[in-house]
Simulated assay, not measured.
Amino acid sequence: MNDDDRIFKALADPTRRGILDALFARDGQSLTELEAVAPDMTRFGVMKHVKLLVDAGLVVTRRDGRRTLHHLNPVPIRLIHDRWISRYVERQAAALADLTQRLESS
């Protein structure tokens, strides 16, 4: 599995997106704090989701004494945006700009 596949797989799950949102809101959370994202899930289940995010490079961990803190790494998402999303948005934005110009000149 290549890096893009890992990132898309990680982003495909709503629980993992919730974890990323939580880290975006407040970076550097412990696993215990991240468990609040999925209160119906076991600690082990949340841990599996976090591990997949780490494997995809979307989350970076750092030891702080006895705790492991999880930090958001937005770089892979930006690379996906630059490679995939912006390519499709650019054409649509250009078409809207052309339409606006034609309507204003009429």
Rank of each mutant, 00 (worst) to 15 (best):
M1H: 07
M1R: 11
N2E: 13
N2K: 07
N2R: 10
N2F: 05
D3M: 11
D4T: 13
D5M: 08
D5I: 10
R6E: 09
I7M: 03
I7Y: 00
F8D: 01
F8K: 04
K9R: 08
K9M: 09
A10N: 06
A10G: 05
L11D: 03
L11V: 06
A12Q: 12
A12D: 07
A12I: 02
P14V: 12
R16W: 07
R16Q: 06
G18V: 12
G18Q: 03
G18Y: 05
A22M: 05
L23H: 01
F24N: 01
F24A: 11
A25V: 04
A25S: 04
A25R: 08
A25C: 02
R26T: 07
D27E: 02
D27N: 13
G28L: 03
Q29K: 06
L31F: 02
L31W: 04
E33F: 02
E33K: 05
L34T: 00
V37C: 01
A38E: 03
A38V: 04
A38R: 00
A38W: 05
P39G: 01
T42W: 03
R43V: 09
F44I: 12
G45D: 04
V46A: 02
M47I: 01
K48C: 04
K48W: 04
H49R: 09
H49I: 03
V50T: 04
V50D: 00
V50K: 00
V50S: 00
L52A: 12
L53N: 00
L53E: 00
L53Y: 02
D55N: 14
D55V: 12
D55I: 11
A56T: 01
V59I: 14
V59M: 02
V59W: 00
V60M: 04
R62D: 13
R63M: 09
R63A: 05
R63C: 02
D64W: 08
G65D: 08
G65L: 12
R66W: 11
R67W: 07
T68W: 10
T68R: 07
L69G: 01
H70Q: 03
H71I: 05
H71L: 14
H71A: 06
L72F: 10
L72R: 01
N73C: 13
N73T: 07
V75N: 00
V75E: 09
V75A: 01
P76I: 10
P76E: 06
R78N: 08
R78C: 06
L79Y: 05
L79C: 07
I80K: 05
I80V: 14
D82K: 08
D82I: 07
R83C: 06
R83D: 10
R83G: 11
R83E: 14
R83V: 09
W84H: 15
I85N: 08
I85S: 09
S86T: 15
R87F: 14
R87V: 15
R87C: 12
Y88H: 15
R91S: 15
R91F: 12
R91N: 06
Q92I: 13
A93G: 06
A93Q: 15
A95H: 09
A95E: 13
L96K: 13
L96P: 00
L96R: 14
A97K: 10
D98M: 11
D98Y: 07
D98N: 06
L99T: 14
L99F: 13
T100K: 15
T100W: 05
T100P: 00
T100R: 15
Q101V: 14
Q101F: 11
L103R: 15
E104K: 15
E104C: 03
E104W: 12
E104H: 08
S106L: 15
S106F: 13
